[in-house]
Design a protein around this nucleic acid. Structure first.
Length: 296
DNA sequence: TAGTCGTGGGT
DNA sequence: TACCCAAGACT
């Protein structure tokens, strides 16, 4: 007797695997609010989820709703962000909370266009919230999903440099029709990409879709060209910004230029980095030669 | 659209 | 060691 048509699809195989192997990340609790989902997604942008988990728990304990965060100075958000990296995300999350209170009755909206209009929310995060918080059938396409779909469905070694409409179309084509099940499939694709179908050393022996993977069927050809440009970090303005912001973040109040000087010996580059932090709104000048975290 | 934007762990 | 990579967004 033949199995149901759905039983051998990538989505079905992925969901079945996910139900048995998914990590128990704190925001996957059924009790997590839409706000909690949104916070977890922004924190996870370009940051391994293992490092996000403890910070997310602290944030949700302290600011269980957008109104709770919006009521505090941005500096508190930047401090609580700790060393997650890309601290502008903390600032955007605070701005997002303010927008939610002002325009959306204090809760994340349900539609993708409305979500896209929020600070810090782009193509990935908007659909992640729509799917994981509200159970909608939207293609949630992050780096894991793009790689998994490129390999398993298209037979390519890797996805392109940037997310394209074609990526969304290729992914939505794999989703089950039932919305809640489609959302589960997206979570499963992401998890397989993160744990099994990894960028450098995929563990095909543990992959639930190995038997139906087009990349594997074609001999797992290695990527032809360079995938994504990796940026140098040491010696860049980014590193200097990070060092300066760490001083401001760990200080209880304003600091002087003399206190910032030791973190980087090149005066020109240090000033440039500090100016960019001021321009971004992460820091502010409270007096000539005296600086503080924004909102402090 | 290609560059910018942190930080830490794995290999 | 040096490089790769990580639930992207924004300009």
């Amino acid at each position: 007797m033949p199995a149901p048509a759905d039983a051998s699809t990538l989505a079905h195989l992925a969901i079945d695997w996910y139900d048995r192997h998914a990590r128990d990340l704190p925001w996957r609790s059924p009790a997590t609010t839409a706000w909690g989902v949104l916070v977890s997604e922004v924190m996870s942008q370009q940051t391994p989820v293992g490092r996000v988990a403890p910070i997310w728990l602290e944030w949700m304990e302290r600011w269980p709703s957008p109104a709770d965060l919006a009521a505090e100075p941005v500096a508190e958000a930047i401090r609580a962000w700790g060393r997650l990296g890309y601290p502008r995300r903390a600032m955007r999350l605070h701005a997002c909370a303010t927008t939610l209170v002002r325009d959306h009755e204090g809760q994340p909206p349900r539609s993708v266009p409305e979500l896209l209009a929020l600070p810090g929310v782009g193509a990935y995060t908007a659909r992640a919230v729509a799917a994981f918080a509200y159970g909608q059938r939207e293609p949630v396409v992050d780096t894991n999903v793009r790689r998994f779909v490129a390999r398993a469905a298209a037979g390519r070694a890797d996805a392109g440099a940037a997310t394209t409409p074609a990526d969304l179309a290729a992914t939505v084509a794999l989703l089950p029709e039932q919305p809640s099940r489609a959302a589960r499939a997206s979570a499963a694709f992401m998890e397989i990409g993160a744990l099994v179908c990894t960028a450098r050393a995929p563990v095909c022996g543990r992959c639930p879709v190995a038997a139906r993977c087009r990349w594997r069927a074609s001999g797992q050809a290695l990527p032809v060209g360079p995938t994504r440009k990796v940026q140098r970090y040491a010696g860049t303005d980014r590193q200097v910004r990070g060092l300066l912001l760490a001083v401001l973040r760990d200080a209880t109040g304003p600091v002087t230029g003399d206190q910032l000087a030791p973190v980087w010996s090149d005066d020109v580059q240090r000033d440039r980095a500090l100016t960019s932090l001021l321009d971004d709104g992460l820091a502010r000048q409270v007096a000539p030669g005296v600086y503080a975290l924004a909102g402090d």
